[in-house]
Structures are given as C-alpha cells and as structure tokens.
Amino acid sequence: MLASWRRLSPMARREALEAYLALSPWLLGFTLFTVMPIAVSIFLSFTQWTIIEQPIWIGADNYVRMFTRDPLFWQALKVTGSFVLISLPLKLVLGLALALLLNNRLPGMNFFRTVFYIPAVISGVAVSLMWMWLLQPDTGVVNTLLDAVGVKGPNWFWDKDWALPSVALMSIWKVGGSAIIYLAGLQNIPAQLYEAAEIDGAGKWGRFWRITIPLLTPTIFFQLIIEMIDSFKVFTEAFVITQGGPLKSTYFYMLYFYEEAFRNFNMGYASALALFLTLIILATTIFINYTSKRWVYYESE
C-alpha cells in the first residue's frame, strides 16, 4: 500500500486523504464493534468455553470435531445450503417483479405500496403463529383454498419434505421489504432512455431486457449479496416454529449455533461454527464480486 502511495500524484494523494477522512467514522466503529469481537471469537474457537467459567485452550480440536465427527454439522450445512438455493432466486425475481408493479404511477398506488410492505413490518411471534395458522394441514386457509380447487395440500411445517419449502415461503412473503430497494434503484434509470428506445420501436420486453435490467444491475448485485447473507443466517423461523424438525429437515446452521452456544453453553465450539459460516459467506461474496465485473454495469465507471 505504501509503495502505491508514493506513486500517487499530489492531487491523487489529496483525494485519498479526503477518502480516509470520510471513512474515519466507519474505521473507528469497525475496530471497536467488529475487529474486537471477531478477535475474541477467533481466540474462543480454539478453546472450550462454558461462558460461565474461564475458557480452556484446546487447540484446533473444535475444527477437527466439526469436520470429522459431527453429523449434525453436516446436516445443518446441507439444510442451510438447500434453503439458500431455493429461496435466493425466488426472492430476487419476485422482489423485482413486485417493484416493477409498484413503480407504476397510478392513483391509489401509495396505498398498495403500503399494503405490500406490511409483511416486512410484522415480526416475531405474531408472524409465526399466523403462518402456523395459515399452513395448518386440515383447517388452514392455504389448504382450504387448495381443497376448493381439488388439490390435496401437504402437511407443510409438519412434513419432513415440506418443512423447508414452508420456511422459504415465509421468507418470500416478506419480499415487500426488498421491493423497496428495487423501487429506489428503478428511480435512477433516466426516462429519456425509455423514450429513445420507444422511438426506435422497442417493445415492452425489449425495453425491460435492454434498459431496465442492465441499468438495475448495481441494485441486483446489492440484493444478491444481501439476500445471500440473510439466507445463510436464517434462524428465527426455525427457532420459533419448527425447532429444527421434523427429522431435522429445518435444522438450520444458525439454529445449531444457537443451541450449542446458549442452550449447551458450548461457546468455544459455537464460535468455530460461526466463523466457518462467515468464511463460507465471505467466499461466496468474493466469488460474486469477481463475476460482477462481467455483468454489473456502473454508469459512473
């Protein structure tokens, strides 16, 4: 870094100094609220710590156990990976679709935008109870409606093959939150581009694929990273509703982490679990970031 500093022109140095100045609040916060806790966690991952008593150094044993003699770790990894693969594409596509719908300027649109935001607002126990009620196999609204059209609905949360899709369905329902971000992104697409394309005879689909999507790629990139991180860290739904069951079909990684840390007081092992998940997410992010040069289009670069 120092070598490159010397190569900079005085003007570039000034710009860099200004940048560091602007970044300084974040750098300070990062050191206090992230570096310190992470350093502690890295240390703890090499110990056995009951939280209540002093940690005991055990070397890499937590990591050895994770990979060689812990079937639950692999199960949690498999469940979480499947969840990411199921929910991530759906969330990205449906969020965009909803945002495009809400981007229409029609009378009363403010009302609709608010309605679609509701699911993102209600949190915790109320939502969980509501979903159990909606997806109740015999009397729930969803299966009653399916019954009306002659389809026998599944047992949802209470079937080992359907529990994971049920949790995915819950998280997709909250897509109104990410639609807001798409909506903001759509505002940055200059209208004259559409007008020019219209004059050139481009149809709706043509304009969508050739203007909306390319100019929205920075937002799509953002959503991809954020939703990926969120999906890997999925926890609350399983914690409140399924407790990881039935037959560990919703035994998410973070649920395993939580049980190890706060139920079994095995914080050393839990730290190792959490750090490994961070590494997986980091690797995925770096990979996506690497591919982004090919498909993300920045107006300013």
């Binding site: 982490f257 914080m267 980091l282």
Partner: peptide, 13 residues
C-alpha cells in the same frame, strides 16, 4: 464482511 458475521457471536464481547 461485517454483515456476514452472525450477530449472536458478538453479543458477549
């Protein structure tokens, strides 16, 4: 990367 670290692990520190 700050966003990737599970929040629960930072709780005690």
């Amino acid at each position: 990367s700050t966003m990737m670290i599970p929040g629960q692990i930072k709780l005690i520190p």
